[in-house]
């Protein structure tokens, strides 16, 4: 798993914010921020593939 370096003062800020916001860890916070940033370029799988994955889930027909 690749590791990324950030400045110490940034880390302190991030850590504080992560705690206040209710994240369980700094990594979780940073991941979430990046996911949100990248969500617009996140491609969806094909509909067939999606249907297949959900197939058999009792709650859905």
């Amino acid at each position: 798993m690749p590791k990324i370096k950030i400045e110490n003062d940034m880390y302190d800020k991030v850590k504080k914010f992560a705690e206040v916001a209710g994240y369980a860890s700094v990594e979780e916070f940073i991941n979430h921020v990046l996911e949100k940033e990248l969500s617009s370029v996140d491609e969806s799988d094909s509909e067939d593939e999606i249907k297949k994955r959900l197939q058999g889930l009792g709650y859905l027909s």
Partner: peptide, 25 residues
């Protein structure tokens, strides 16, 4: 986790893809 869905991110069996409106596990 001891937190509600706002903290653990599981709101349903399905989540929606914001770009395609398609469901995902």
């Amino acid at each position: 986790t001891g937190v509600n869905a706002g903290g653990h991110n599981i709101f349903d069996f399905l989540s929606r893809h914001k770009q395609s409106y398609l469901p995902e596990l």
